[in-house]
Design a protein around this nucleic acid. Structure first.
Lengths: 340, 340
DNA sequence: TTGAAAGCGATACCAA
DNA sequence: TTGGTATCGCTTTCAA
């Protein structure tokens, strides 16, 4: 493994000069520059990032901590998001360090450790939570990070979020246009900030259409297929069950479809369903799932770009970016209502 | 951020002594040791991993490269596997650096770069391939790694693999016991070593039961739901389609089920299906999918333990471990055959 | 335009 | 049992 010294020796210059050439610190004659570059080439030299980091610069690492709950193993969200992070980081010559935390209580410590060990230059935090300890810590520590999701409070940091309010509002409107009047909502876990916005979208849509808000049609959900199954079962137990339901995510939407089927009812004829996310599963299930698409890859990519700008001290173009989800109509939402 | 100097100053010892205490290099009196530890505590000191790495030790990082094909975004395999890697690594005070490669051609370079930049102490390589460049490079470079999957050739390295041969054999036997005689196989991508073993299991089972091997019942598959859909469509086009099919993975199995349904046929009554993997999706779909379960989390955990032993120069207990997949019977494989 | 040399924060050899 | 110091590979003044 050649070092800067080997290059200097071969090019007959000092290591300082080699460094100048490699870092474009100008001030080097074309002749020497060429000589150095040739030596670098010949030796297949690569500067040691470790040594570079020691000089107080950067680690060329971005941190991503897997939450112990929320979006865990069953959610393909990760693959796409993480691929985006790694891909984009790579384009900046950065890597992504992935860590897990055993439980929520040790989560903050995980971040602290990464910071204290100077393992990463910045973090990408996913799925903001009301009263989010991670965010609170990073903000007070003044450590660079960007988040997927808005804060629930006044914390100020760069983020990308999806407009859950507008998305759900549109989905509900779509169902209303189809003739539905009793529309249920299976909520996401209260541990997620985005639950609130989706709820708002639901309420707004009903209101704008002069429909009453019926609390019994709002079911406490969670995150998993099972959560959706249970929530839907509860809804079906109602004296007058909803004829359509919006689920907080696709996994719960699929759970809801299964609950409906297990009662001998049909989707979308008896109950129409719309999910949120558009994970691959949405197009595998039958009937295929109508849903609000979030572009996880694009979001991850954007986040890394923002973080890189932050690290470089550049201006972030849109530090607080809200993206519109796309309503994807497949089979589960059905056509115009004919009965019920 | 306090350094070793600060600790030394506060404890009134040399930095060498601090280092001795921190690395348990013995030879330090109880009194000084206590004094140093107290100083460390008071300052909240943490040794810089960067500086440590520069001294030629370890980076405390394990590398994992996302392949550009194979098991990509639609496969939840990752979440479980990666969680296992990160979890287990953390228990050794290690982290996992995740990288992607744009295309297959640059994959080898990605590994080379990580090695040359000394970014990681070792790699976990997933899904071995026939003629695997990654393996070839790492072996010749003498760089520490472990793999999920056997080599296709004589390369020698520590790995964990699942006995696809035994698994598929058992699944086929199960179908035969149910009365099936025309059993199809939707193969995995030829780019995967494990395809061969699964094929062997299929052939062996037929042979042991005196059933003829009918080449037209073996469909070229791939990896995705779509691959399974297409392969199954081909099988259904046969003059005499199979009454049962084993798919190379769950994703293709679901694709096969969809193809069957789209023809107006039913699973398992017209065609029984068995998958491989037991991803969460397997229990979400209806009918629920019978499959051969691979314990991705357990495999990931085991791999990291092996790699850590390798890095520490310890003996690896079982350097070449083959695990049995578990046959999970759900609805898609049906009960005893009554017709066809 | 180039180079000598001082760090960056740790480890470990050699003395004391 | 402790400490001085060279060293890892690089960046960056400061001089020449």
């Amino acid at each position: 493994m050649p070092t800067i010294k080997d290059v200097a020796r071969l090019a007959n210059v000092s290591i300082a000069t080699v460094s100048y050439v490699l870092n474009n610190s100008g001030l080097v004659s074309e002749a020497t520059r060429a000589r150095v570059l040739a030596a670098v080439e010949e030796l297949g030299y690569r500067p040691s990032i470790i040594a570079r980091s020691l000089k107080g610069k950067h680690t060329h690492m971005l941190g991503f901590v897997l939450s112990p709950f929320a979006r865990q193993p069953q959610d393909p969200f990760f693959n796409e998001f993480l691929s985006a992070l790694a891909d984009t980081a790579a384009s900046f010559d950065y890597h992504v360090a992935v860590t897990t935390t055993a439980d929520l209580s040790s989560e903050r410590k995980t971040y602290e450790d990464m910071v204290r060990d100077r393992r990463v230059d910045g973090f990408i935090v996913a799925d903001t939570r009301p009263d989010d300890e991670r965010l609170a810590y990073l903000v007070t520590a003044g450590f660079p990070f960007v988040a997927f999701g808005r804060p629930a409070n006044e914390l100020d940091f760069p983020y990308v979020d999806v407009d859950g309010r507008a998305g759900v509002k549109r989905a509900v409107q779509h169902l209303i246009d189809l003739g539905h009047r009793r529309i249920g909502l299976i909520e996401l876990s209260p541990a997620l900030v985005c639950r609130m916005h989706r709820r708002q979208g639901y309420e707004t849509a009903l209101q704008e259409n002069g429909l009453p808000l019926q609390p019994e049609l709002i079911a406490v959900g969670g995150l998993t297929e099972k959560d959706g199954y249970l929530a839907m079962s509860g809804l079906l137990d109602l004296a007058r069950p909803p004829t359509a339901v919006i689920a907080g995510n696709d996994l719960m939407a699929v759970g809801a479809m299964n609950a409906i089927r297990d009662r001998g009812l049909a989707v979308p004829d008896d109950v129409a369903i719309i999910g949120f996310d558009d994970i691959p599963l949405a197009s595998y299930v039958r009937p295929t799932l109508s849903t609000l698409r979030q572009d996880f890859y694009g979001i991850g990519e954007r986040l890394v770009r923002m973080l890189m700008a932050l690290l470089r001290g550049e201006e972030i173009t849109e530090p607080q970016k809200i993206l519109e989800p796309t309503l994807i109509i497949r089979e589960s939402s059905g056509g115009a209502l004919t009965k019920g």
